[in-house]
Design a protein around this nucleic acid. Structure first.
Length: 576
DNA sequence: GCCGTTTTCGGCCCGACTGTTTTCAGTCG
């Protein structure tokens, strides 16, 4: 049983306990444990074997026992019994926004409703509105949400969300009196997908900003609208929340709305022990009732005796404890990146010429760039065969004469075939500066096969980098089924570099894998895999993801000057 | 159910909005 499945069971337990009306703190304990496991970079099965489950924050005696039962037997008796107490399907009602445990139980008990379809029918027949504490308006709202859930494409990739925000911001910025307009929430934390978009700002008069916001042309529907806060639905069923406070409270507002939820709960619990109460408006002394406001997040954290915590690692793991001890590292920044080792040109499936890619990289302030077009196996991408690669090497040599101020490397993204062999002979690869390998086909193989295939490629001394290691494409293609721990161990042994692919629909390696790889000391590189000149600026998504994995500059190969990279790559110390 | 530079027992984040209410419950983030 993997982490994802365990998380699901814990979440379901929390749902059923809610329906049952159990102690809210017990429910919260299950939810906290689930969130915590979701963030974990280690498979719990491993921890069970080593009897280290209770090292996971939020996992105590009782939950550890339940996880152990799940892992060893594949089932949990407590859960099965709990589930049996309710009509099947009732928990699906909780997926509809606006329906909580009380409403779900009411619908089930009074009207026998246990599915979304039954609910819709009952609303249309006017039965729901007649229930106690319901009414026409509530029934109508539930119906609306129910239909929205059906059409909404769940969480959207980070890159898409950023585009939506850009569209909204261009229009909101022109509203008079609005300041500090900033995306917060999971977007600011660079989470790979976002469920909704949180925007915040400050204003002299919040109400006028809210008014303008709800009447923006892209707004399809207004869900809620108060004096300082509004929620709307824009294209693709995406929910956007805007919250406005007064200028002097911006620091605490930004902190509050950035989350994560678990980070804020942990932070507030800690503050409470210090006799302080936190809110989006500021920090209140519980005894005196006096509130301080904060212009910046740095000041806010400082008041709590904490080092500043970057948004990307505010996930409620152990960041607050580290901040209290002053041991939050300086995470890698975009300005640390000195070059790019994986870009394509119009020689294969890229749009732009080698020369324009190089010029663009130079404009980014990069010291080096490696041209790595596809190999012949990727016929659809116009992959290069021997002769064309030979011609490309000569072309790159000519460009080197014309452009100075940036070092140009010759590379290739070689296809790892279904049997783990490469579709370019070693004697050719030996001549290239940097060779990247990746899988583009046969991604449905068994875990055993794929893992063996990747390990074989990593063991080839000519392969320097493994690109987009898990092959996922959000939202449509899942990661390949790989034993990542085995891949990390092999990369460590062979010295092969693993890529953090910055393309917003890839972000591959993902954050938790990065965390684990870094912990083990695996070499990492952040590449954009650019196919156009514009793509080079997507590096920020790769850096954000690396930061979520707690990477410092020293963990990332392309923060180093080229001669150091080449020294590493060609080093004899690597045992292959 | 978890957890501890005030506690191994007694606490457990905080506020906004909506709708159906005569003062608040339910839900959300």
């Amino acid at each position: 049983m993997n982490n994802k499945q365990i998380v699901k069971v814990l979440e379901d337990i929390a749902d059923f306990l809610e329906l049952k009306g159990e102690n809210v703190f017990k429910i919260r304990a299950y939810q906290k444990a689930a969130r915590s496991i979701e963030q974990s970079s280690v498979e719990l099965e491993q921890l069970v074997n080593e009897d280290r489950l209770k090292e996971v924050s939020g996992v105590g005696e009782a939950i550890a026992k339940k996880i152990t039962e799940l892992v060893t037997t594949g089932k949990l008796e407590y859960f099965e019994k709990l589930k049996a107490e309710f009509p099947p399907g009732i928990s699906t009602l909780l997926e509809i926004p606006g329906i909580g445990p009380k409403t779900a139980m009411l619908l089930s008990n009074e009207l026998g409703i246990n599915s979304i379809e039954e609910l819709e029918k009952a609303i249309l027949e006017g039965k729901v509105a007649q229930l106690p504490r319901m009414g026409e308006k509530t029934a109508e709202n539930i119906l609306r949400h129910l239909q929205a859930v059906r059409h909404k494409d769940q969480r959207i990739p980070l890159g898409d969300a950023v585009n939506v925000v850009d569209g909204i911001f261009t229009r909101l910025r022109v509203i008079p009196g609005v300041k500090n307009l900033t995306p917060a929430g999971s977007l600011r934390r660079f989470k790979e997908t976002v469920g909704d978009i949180d925007l915040i700002g400050t204003a002299d008069n919040a109400e006028t900003v809210i008014d303008s916001f709800v009447s923006l042309p892209m707004v399809r529907e207004v869900l809620a609208r108060g004096l300082t806060k509004a929620s709307v639905i824009v294209t693709r069923g995406l929910q956007v929340d805007l919250r406005i406070v007064e200028h002097e409270a911006f620091g605490s507002l930004l902190q509050h709305f950035t989350g994560s939820k678990q980070h804020n709960i942990d932070l507030r619990e800690r503050a409470r022990r210090q006799g302080l109460s936190l809110s989006e408006y500021g920090i209140t002394d519980i005894d005196t009732g006096k509130m301080e406001t904060f212009l910046s997040e740095v000041a806010f954290y400082k008041r709590l005796g904490l080092q500043y915590i970057p948004p990307e690692i505010r996930e409620g793991t152990d960041e607050i404890e580290k901040a209290a001890h002053g041991t939050i590292p300086r995470l890698v920044e975009i300005s640390d990146i000195k070059g790019e080792l994986h870009v394509h040109s119009d020689w294969s499936d890229g749009r732009d010429t080698i020369e324009s890619m190089v010029t663009e990289a130079k404009d980014h302030g990069y010291e080096y760039i490696c041209i790595s077009d596809h190999s012949v196996g990727r016929g659809i991408a116009r992959g290069l065969n021997h002769e064309r690669l030979e011609q490309q090497i000569q072309e790159i040599n000519r460009i080197k004469q014309r452009i100075d101020g940036i070092q140009i490397l010759t590379g290739m993204e070689v296809d790892i075939r279904a049997d783990g062999s490469l579709d370019m002979p070693d004697e050719i690869l030996e001549r290239l500066d940097i060779v990247t390998a990746s899988i583009h086909s046969g991604m449905e193989q068994t875990q055993e096969k794929i893992t063996a295939r990747i390990i074989k490629a990593l063991e080839n001394p000519n392969i320097d980098i493994l690109a987009h290691p898990t092959g996922r494409l959000m939202p449509k293609r899942e990661a390949m089924d790989i034993d990542m721990e085995a891949v990390f161990q092999t990369a460590l042994r062979t010295g092969t570099v693993l890529e953090i692919n910055a393309m917003p629909d890839r972000l591959d390696l993902k954050d938790t894998y990065i965390y684990r790889a870094r912990q083990l000391g695996v070499a990492l590189v952040i590449n954009t895999d650019s196919h156009t000149t514009e793509h080079l600026s997507l590096i920020r998504f790769g850096v954000g993801t690396a930061r979520r994995g707690w990477c410092e500059a020293k963990d990332i190969l392309n923060t180093r000057p080229l001669h150091e990279i080449m020294k590493y790559i060609k080093s004899k110390g690597r045992q292959r």
